[in-house]
């Protein structure tokens, strides 16, 4: 495995510590081993807040309001989040000369779709699809959303081929069924085993979301409304979500994973406090429980 040296320039002490912790959390998730070095002159890549010195060698990543690339600079959204950092590191690894000898780790299809930053064609096991990131559209020949998700969920993300530019089947565009790209990512992410891949801890991390999922347009279930209410209101642990909904922790983690891939502003921070939610769901005779029954909105703990 190649080792790449990362330095920072212009970051506060606090931000440097966060970057160091984030790199540790990403260990094993990137094709190369990333190590922090103090001096940018000995680094392969330097993360810069502000103006980079004119003599700065190697690859430069600038803290910016959005991710992407500008000229020779990579851009990373500030403040740095894990999701943004891994995107940056993997983008740089793709450019790195030794990359051909280093297989990239397998990413899920949901993750790969979430990373799309421009319009792309997909060849997915014989199914033709087109993803329009800016328009939030996913066009395919599959005429049912449920069937589409069923087919996509059974596919290994690494086997999907992404093609930029004009596709030979572009003439079929009019016959393609349009879906929301985010709705596709949401549904696929909900079906992934995030608890394993993300290595989240059930009670030692607190999660929050800045924006609610687009329920009604994306896949919706009563337990998702409860989780959105919880994590949208205050930071809470996975255990809190389990207690509130009665779900398996794997489902709660999948919900948060889907929130992150759909860019709903997932935050994760360390917590040492015990879970706060002690859920005594409304008694069957409570007004809320009866209102649910009356409207056919029953909620059963699993």
């Amino acid at each position: 495995m190649d080792t790449l040296r990362l330095a920072s320039h212009g970051l506060s002490k606090h931000d440097q510590e966060i970057l160091s912790k984030q790199l540790k959390m990403l260990r094993g998730r990137t094709a190369c081993e990333w190590v922090l070095v103090d001096d940018y002159r000995s680094a392969d890549v330097t993360l810069v807040q502000g103006q980079p010195p004119s003599d700065m060698p190697g690859i430069i990543a600038l803290a910016s309001t959005k991710a992407g690339k500008s000229g020779r600079y990579h851009l990373i959204e500030w403040p740095i989040r894990l999701f943004g950092l891994i995107d940056l590191l993997m983008a740089i690894e793709l450019e790195w000369p030794a990359r051909a000898a280093t297989p990239l780790p397998t990413l899920s299809l949901a993750h790969r779709l979430a990373r799309i930053r421009q319009d792309q064609w997909l060849d997915v096991a014989g199914m033709v699809a087109q993803a329009f990131q800016a328009k939030d559209e996913f066009r395919t020949t599959v005429s049912s959303f449920d069937e589409l998700i069923e087919r996509l969920a059974s596919i290994d993300g690494a086997s999907v081929r992404f093609v930029e530019g004009h596709h030979p089947l572009a003439d079929q565009e009019a016959a393609l069924e349009p879906y929301s790209l985010k709705a596709v990512i949401w549904s696929l992410a909900l079906r992934e085993e995030a608890i394993k891949s993300r290595q989240w801890h059930i009670s030692q991390q607190q999660f929050g979301i800045a924006t609610w999922p687009l329920f009604g347009t994306w896949e919706t279930a009563p337990w998702m409304l409860r989780l959105a209410a919880l994590y949208g209101r205050q930071p809470a642990t996975l255990a809190d979500g389990v207690e509130l909904t009665g779900l398996r922790v794997e489902l709660v983690a999948a919900f948060l994973h889907a929130c992150e891939l759909c860019e709903l502003g997932l935050t994760v921070k360390q917590s040492t406090r015990p879970p706060r939610i002690e859920s005594k769901l409304p008694a069957p005779e409570s007004l809320l429980a009866r209102l649910r029954r009356k409207l056919g909105l029953g909620y059963k703990r699993t």
């Binding site: 979301i209 687009l214 329920f215 209410a229 919880l230 409207l295």
Partner: peptide, 28 residues
């Protein structure tokens, strides 16, 4: 962080989703 949905109030299911969201919040 408040819920925002695309809604057509002529469809009862759309209105029920809005109400169910309020119920979920009230339960919390």
């Amino acid at each position: 962080a408040l819920p925002v949905y695309a809604t057509d109030v002529r469809h009862k299911q759309n209105v029920l989703l809005l109400i169910e969201t309020l119920i979920a919040n009230a339960e919390l």
